[in-house]
Amino acid sequence: MAEITGGQPPALLAIIRMIDGFTDRTGTIISWLSVPLVLAVAYEVGARYLFNAPTIWAYDATYMLYGSLFMLGAAYALHKGAHIRTDFFWEKFSIRRKGWIDTISYLVFFFPSLIMLFLISWNEFHYAWLINETSDQTPWRPVLWPFKFVVPLACLLLLVQGVSELIKSIYMARTGVELEHKEKVEI
Protein backbone atom coordinates (compact mmCIF):
# COMPACT_ATOMS: atom_id res chain seq x y z
CA MET A 1 0.00 0.00 0.00
CA ALA A 2 1.10 3.53 -0.70
CA GLU A 3 3.24 5.11 1.96
CA ILE A 4 3.19 8.82 1.26
CA THR A 5 6.38 10.22 2.67
CA GLY A 6 6.70 13.78 3.88
CA GLY A 7 8.29 16.78 2.24
CA GLN A 8 6.37 17.36 -0.99
CA PRO A 9 4.19 20.28 -2.05
CA PRO A 10 0.83 20.00 -0.26
CA ALA A 11 -1.24 20.88 -3.36
CA LEU A 12 0.22 17.99 -5.38
CA LEU A 13 -0.13 15.69 -2.44
CA ALA A 14 -3.77 16.67 -2.12
CA ILE A 15 -4.40 15.87 -5.78
CA ILE A 16 -2.65 12.51 -5.49
CA ARG A 17 -4.57 11.65 -2.33
CA MET A 18 -7.87 12.67 -3.87
CA ILE A 19 -7.33 10.64 -7.05
CA ASP A 20 -5.91 7.58 -5.28
CA GLY A 21 -8.78 7.70 -2.83
CA PHE A 22 -11.25 7.90 -5.67
CA THR A 23 -9.68 4.91 -7.43
CA ASP A 24 -9.56 2.93 -4.19
CA ARG A 25 -13.25 3.51 -3.59
CA THR A 26 -14.42 2.88 -7.15
CA GLY A 27 -12.09 -0.14 -7.38
CA THR A 28 -13.58 -1.59 -4.22
CA ILE A 29 -17.07 -1.22 -5.62
CA ILE A 30 -16.12 -2.64 -9.04
CA SER A 31 -14.41 -5.64 -7.45
CA TRP A 32 -17.84 -6.82 -6.27
CA LEU A 33 -18.77 -7.59 -9.89
CA SER A 34 -17.10 -10.96 -9.24
CA VAL A 35 -19.90 -11.87 -6.85
CA PRO A 36 -22.76 -11.80 -9.38
CA LEU A 37 -20.34 -13.41 -11.84
CA VAL A 38 -19.74 -16.37 -9.54
CA LEU A 39 -23.43 -16.60 -8.70
CA ALA A 40 -24.62 -16.40 -12.32
CA VAL A 41 -22.23 -19.10 -13.53
CA ALA A 42 -22.89 -21.40 -10.58
CA TYR A 43 -26.65 -20.88 -10.80
CA GLU A 44 -26.61 -21.82 -14.47
CA VAL A 45 -24.94 -25.16 -13.74
CA GLY A 46 -27.27 -25.79 -10.81
CA ALA A 47 -30.34 -24.91 -12.82
CA ARG A 48 -29.24 -27.21 -15.60
CA TYR A 49 -28.53 -30.28 -13.52
CA LEU A 50 -30.84 -29.86 -10.54
CA PHE A 51 -33.97 -28.38 -12.14
CA ASN A 52 -33.26 -29.34 -15.77
CA ALA A 53 -34.07 -25.72 -16.64
CA PRO A 54 -31.03 -23.78 -17.78
CA THR A 55 -31.36 -20.04 -17.86
CA ILE A 56 -31.68 -17.88 -20.90
CA TRP A 57 -29.58 -15.09 -19.39
CA ALA A 58 -26.49 -16.68 -17.87
CA TYR A 59 -24.34 -16.66 -21.01
CA ASP A 60 -24.80 -12.94 -21.69
CA ALA A 61 -24.57 -12.07 -18.00
CA THR A 62 -21.31 -14.00 -17.70
CA TYR A 63 -19.35 -12.25 -20.42
CA MET A 64 -20.83 -8.86 -19.58
CA LEU A 65 -19.77 -9.15 -15.92
CA TYR A 66 -16.34 -10.54 -16.79
CA GLY A 67 -15.74 -7.88 -19.47
CA SER A 68 -16.80 -5.08 -17.13
CA LEU A 69 -14.74 -6.44 -14.23
CA PHE A 70 -11.38 -6.50 -15.94
CA MET A 71 -11.89 -3.30 -17.95
CA LEU A 72 -13.19 -1.18 -15.09
CA GLY A 73 -10.66 -2.74 -12.72
CA ALA A 74 -7.76 -1.63 -14.90
CA ALA A 75 -7.50 1.77 -13.17
CA TYR A 76 -7.20 0.13 -9.77
CA ALA A 77 -4.58 -2.26 -11.17
CA LEU A 78 -2.68 0.77 -12.47
CA HIS A 79 -2.83 2.36 -9.05
CA LYS A 80 -1.42 -0.79 -7.46
CA GLY A 81 1.30 -1.15 -10.08
CA ALA A 82 -0.17 -4.41 -11.27
CA HIS A 83 0.42 -3.84 -14.96
CA ILE A 84 3.30 -6.06 -15.97
CA ARG A 85 6.67 -4.59 -16.74
CA THR A 86 9.87 -6.43 -17.55
CA ASP A 87 12.37 -6.02 -14.75
CA PHE A 88 15.43 -7.22 -16.61
CA PHE A 89 17.09 -3.85 -16.07
CA TRP A 90 14.32 -2.04 -14.20
CA GLU A 91 15.32 -3.25 -10.73
CA LYS A 92 18.82 -1.88 -11.23
CA PHE A 93 17.70 1.62 -12.24
CA SER A 94 17.89 4.52 -9.83
CA ILE A 95 14.61 5.96 -8.58
CA ARG A 96 15.27 9.10 -10.54
CA ARG A 97 15.72 7.17 -13.76
CA LYS A 98 12.60 5.12 -13.09
CA GLY A 99 10.76 8.40 -12.59
CA TRP A 100 11.95 9.73 -15.92
CA ILE A 101 11.04 6.56 -17.79
CA ASP A 102 7.57 6.54 -16.25
CA THR A 103 7.02 10.24 -16.86
CA ILE A 104 7.83 9.79 -20.52
CA SER A 105 5.72 6.64 -20.83
CA TYR A 106 2.72 8.35 -19.28
CA LEU A 107 3.02 11.49 -21.38
CA VAL A 108 3.86 9.81 -24.67
CA PHE A 109 2.38 6.31 -24.45
CA PHE A 110 -0.41 6.36 -21.95
CA PHE A 111 -2.42 9.56 -22.32
CA PRO A 112 -2.56 9.88 -26.13
CA SER A 113 -3.49 6.22 -26.64
CA LEU A 114 -6.21 6.21 -24.01
CA ILE A 115 -7.67 9.52 -25.13
CA MET A 116 -8.01 8.09 -28.65
CA LEU A 117 -9.56 4.89 -27.36
CA PHE A 118 -11.93 6.92 -25.21
CA LEU A 119 -13.13 9.04 -28.17
CA ILE A 120 -13.60 6.07 -30.48
CA SER A 121 -15.35 3.93 -27.89
CA TRP A 122 -17.64 6.79 -26.99
CA ASN A 123 -18.78 6.98 -30.62
CA GLU A 124 -19.39 3.24 -30.70
CA PHE A 125 -21.38 3.39 -27.49
CA HIS A 126 -23.40 6.27 -28.93
CA TYR A 127 -24.12 4.28 -32.10
CA ALA A 128 -25.25 1.23 -30.12
CA TRP A 129 -27.54 3.54 -28.16
CA LEU A 130 -28.97 5.11 -31.35
CA ILE A 131 -29.86 1.84 -33.07
CA ASN A 132 -30.82 0.23 -29.74
CA GLU A 133 -28.40 -2.58 -30.48
CA THR A 134 -29.02 -5.87 -28.68
CA SER A 135 -26.79 -8.89 -28.14
CA ASP A 136 -27.11 -11.57 -30.78
CA GLN A 137 -25.30 -14.20 -28.72
CA THR A 138 -28.42 -15.76 -27.20
CA PRO A 139 -32.19 -15.52 -27.60
CA TRP A 140 -32.25 -13.37 -24.46
CA ARG A 141 -30.97 -10.39 -26.50
CA PRO A 142 -30.18 -7.85 -23.78
CA VAL A 143 -29.48 -4.27 -24.90
CA LEU A 144 -25.80 -3.70 -25.58
CA TRP A 145 -25.20 -0.02 -24.90
CA PRO A 146 -24.52 -0.36 -21.17
CA PHE A 147 -21.87 -2.97 -21.98
CA LYS A 148 -20.41 -0.80 -24.73
CA PHE A 149 -20.37 2.12 -22.29
CA VAL A 150 -17.91 0.16 -20.17
CA VAL A 151 -15.08 0.86 -22.64
CA PRO A 152 -15.18 4.69 -22.51
CA LEU A 153 -15.82 4.53 -18.77
CA ALA A 154 -12.78 2.31 -18.25
CA CYS A 155 -10.68 4.73 -20.32
CA LEU A 156 -11.93 7.62 -18.20
CA LEU A 157 -11.08 5.87 -14.92
CA LEU A 158 -7.63 4.99 -16.28
CA LEU A 159 -7.03 8.57 -17.42
CA VAL A 160 -7.98 9.92 -13.99
CA GLN A 161 -5.63 7.53 -12.20
CA GLY A 162 -3.00 8.26 -14.85
CA VAL A 163 -2.88 11.90 -13.67
CA SER A 164 -1.96 10.77 -10.17
CA GLU A 165 0.65 8.33 -11.49
CA LEU A 166 2.13 11.02 -13.72
CA ILE A 167 2.54 13.38 -10.79
CA LYS A 168 4.21 10.63 -8.77
CA SER A 169 6.57 9.87 -11.66
CA ILE A 170 7.53 13.51 -12.16
CA TYR A 171 8.17 13.78 -8.44
CA MET A 172 10.38 10.68 -8.55
CA ALA A 173 12.27 12.02 -11.55
CA ARG A 174 12.91 15.40 -9.95
CA THR A 175 13.65 14.44 -6.35
CA GLY A 176 14.80 10.83 -6.54
CA VAL A 177 12.30 9.97 -3.81
CA GLU A 178 9.71 7.24 -4.31
CA LEU A 179 6.29 8.53 -3.21
CA GLU A 180 4.90 5.04 -3.06
CA HIS A 181 6.39 1.60 -3.55
CA LYS A 182 4.46 -0.86 -5.67
CA GLU A 183 4.73 -4.55 -4.89
CA LYS A 184 4.53 -7.27 -7.51
CA VAL A 185 1.09 -8.71 -8.05
CA GLU A 186 0.89 -12.45 -8.52
CA ILE A 187 0.20 -14.18 -11.80
Binding site: N52, P54, Y59, T138, P139
Partner: peptide, 24 residues
Protein backbone atom coordinates in the same frame (compact mmCIF):
# COMPACT_ATOMS: atom_id res chain seq x y z
CA UNK B 1 -37.60 -30.39 -24.79
CA UNK B 2 -35.07 -30.63 -22.04
CA UNK B 3 -32.28 -31.20 -24.54
CA UNK B 4 -29.51 -28.68 -24.61
CA UNK B 5 -28.60 -27.68 -28.12
CA UNK B 6 -25.88 -25.53 -29.52
CA UNK B 7 -27.67 -23.21 -31.89
CA UNK B 8 -27.32 -19.52 -32.57
CA UNK B 9 -29.08 -16.46 -33.91
CA UNK B 10 -32.66 -16.40 -35.15
CA UNK B 11 -32.85 -20.20 -35.39
CA UNK B 12 -31.91 -20.33 -31.72
CA UNK B 13 -34.65 -17.87 -30.97
CA UNK B 14 -37.25 -20.05 -32.69
CA UNK B 15 -36.08 -23.15 -30.79
CA UNK B 16 -36.09 -21.27 -27.53
CA UNK B 17 -39.69 -20.20 -28.22
CA UNK B 18 -40.57 -23.86 -28.83
CA UNK B 19 -39.33 -24.68 -25.34
CA UNK B 20 -35.89 -26.07 -26.13
CA UNK B 21 -32.75 -25.01 -24.40
CA UNK B 22 -30.41 -23.13 -26.62
CA UNK B 23 -26.79 -22.63 -25.64
CA UNK B 24 -24.09 -20.78 -27.48
Amino acid sequence: KGMKCRQTGMAGEVWQALGFTVVN
